[in-house]
Design a binder for these strands. Structure first.
Length: 479
DNA sequence: TTTTGAGTTGTTCGA
DNA sequence: GTCGAACAACTCAAA
């Protein structure tokens, strides 16, 4: 039995190879390919995510000759039941490190084991599985650059070849059928599936990657790979990407982005509490805005009506495409955190609901990075200027005009500062809800009020989690 | 154990 | 208009 989760592809899929070869070793070559829809979790997903996953499953189904078996139910109960139903000798899948994935798999494994059925995890959604890249003392890296160096030294396997002999896919007559594909509330769903992902990658390799080191910052250009959604669902494996990369600047920078995904997976594996809690708990003590006024500001941010064009364009791109350019993600995040003084989890949850590529580890730690409480914590003074960022990275205003029709009549980069354009607000675009210069100082002030001269135990599993005074520094030179 | 150098993505101000 | 310095104090990684 082959259980697909976040690995919706048939090529470069080690778990598939294991399942198929195991089936032939058993003699009959029979494999049942299963996907589970958990009726308790499914309704909590946004319509865009549901639609994308359904599209991706249909693509996978087609690759399997129409033999994908979809079942509805809770994995811990249903997986052992299906395995018994088919008399499976083993259940194969790739390891999952996200959210409650580890606990769920442990429970499934123990139930299967009780029935004499093997549970075999082969590979993961990462080039190097979490837990493998560590410092010499065995602990995990908390800083990206040394992690990257060690990750490069560690290396990764070549892409897996397809199984020598195709299996007999069985059991499709027991398929519960697809969930209904929801109305996507205006979100345009990109083409899903393995073939689409491979085509995206080829397109990226054929040109944009050569200027990726520069153009990846430009939301007005098609400078990025757009592979984040495919990576999230495992329609393509990072190893498939890495195998095609060389040493040119563009390739190097793209490889580093892949490594960021792996770094955050590692940190999340070591610190699963940081999906929702502060990596640096000191920041939990900072003053954040809540209440009716904050709620109204949050709503304006969500709906793209803050009065800052670059921010609003990003938030509207999120709502129409289920995706946002990375540069703009940082700017809108900084705006929510530093201009509206709202806690990072609120923005992270909103992102996670709407982003088709929403990945718990990257999302949580990306937000914590911007908030200053994450790994490689940003210097306190790093506050993005929403106007300056727009002028710098969308110099002609094309990105803004694409997503904000109320500003489409303003030509060029002037669109980033509508208050300087007579009649700019005549088409319904709002004036700024806050004054950035003032809120920047407010944010710096609140940060400065955090306790100093203390460090905080970073491992929540320590019994002695507490603030303790820093040891006095050794005598400075010359004294 | 101690020391040293470094730490993704910025902004502002004044020369 | 350009450019470099200043903007905290701290933790992390490695020698």
């Amino acid at each position: 039995m082959l259980w697909f989760r976040r690995d919706l592809r048939i090529h470069d899929n080690p778990a598939l190879v294991e399942a198929v070869e195991g089936a032939w070793a058993d003699g009959d070559g029979n494999v049942v390919a299963v996907v589970l829809i958990d009726p308790n979790l499914w309704p909590g997903w946004g319509p865009g995510k549901q639609a994308y996953l359904i599209d991706s499953l249909r693509s996978l189904d087609e690759s399997l000759g129409g033999n994908l078996v979809i079942r509805h139910g809770k994995a811990q109960d249903v997986i052992p039941a299906i395995a018994k139903e088919f008399g499976a000798s083993a259940v194969h899948c790739a390891a999952d490190y996200t959210g409650n994935g580890i606990a769920r798999d442990n429970e499934a494994a123990s139930r299967l084991s009780a029935s004499g059925i093997e549970f075999v995890k082969t590979g993961s959604g990462y080039a190097v599985a979490p837990g493998r890249v560590a410092k010499d003392d065995g602990t995990y890296y908390k800083v990206y650059t040394p992690f990257y160096k060690r990750w490069m030294i560690h290396g990764w396997r070549a892409p897996a070849a397809d199984p020598a002999k195709a299996p007999n896919w069985i059991g499709v007559d027991t398929c519960d059928g697809y969930p209904e594909r929801p109305d996507t509330a205006g979100v345009e769903i990109p083409r899903a599936g393995e073939a689409a992902a491979l085509e995206l990658f080829e397109t990226f390799l054929a040109g944009p990657i050569d200027t990726y080191d520069e153009d990846r910052n430009r939301p007005d250009l098609a400078g990025t790979s757009r592979l984040s959604i495919a990576l999230k669902w495992g329609e393509i494996h990072p190893r498939t990407l890495l195998a095609r990369l060389g040493d040119s600047k563009g390739h190097e920078v793209f490889r580093k982005e892949i490594a960021w995904r792996e770094f955050y997976a590692e940190v999340s594996y070591q610190r699963p509490d940081t999906f929702t809690d502060y990596f640096n708990p000191l920041y939990a003590q900072m003053q954040y805005d809540t209440g009716k006024e904050a709620d109204e500001k949050f709503a304006a941010w969500c709906e793209g009506r803050t009065g800052y064009p670059f921010v609003d364009a990003g938030m509207r791109q999120l709502r129409t495409e289920g995706w946002m350019h990375n540069r703009v993600r940082m700017v809108v995040a900084s705006f929510l955190l530093k201009d509206l003084h709202i806690e990072w989890q609120r923005g992270a949850n909103y992102f996670f609901d709407w982003l088709l590529d929403g990945d718990l580890a990257s999302n949580s730690h990306g937000w914590q990075w911007t908030a200053g409480c994450g790994t490689d914590a940003s210097p306190y003074y790093r506050v993005f200027n929403p106007i300056g960022q727009g002028i710098k990275f969308d110099p002609n205003g094309e990105y803004v005009r694409k997503y904000i029709p109320e500003l489409a009549h303003i030509p060029g980069g002037a669109v980033h500062e509508p208050w300087n354009v007579p009649g700019a607000f005549d088409h319904g675009y709002p004036e700024p809800i806050v004054d950035h210069a003032a809120e920047r100082l407010e944010a710096l002030d609140r940060l400065s009020k955090l306790p100093k001269g203390v460090q905080v135990a970073q491992n929540p599993h320590d019994d002695d989690l507490k603030i303790r005074p820093v040891k006095k520094a050794a005598n400075p030179k010359g004294k």
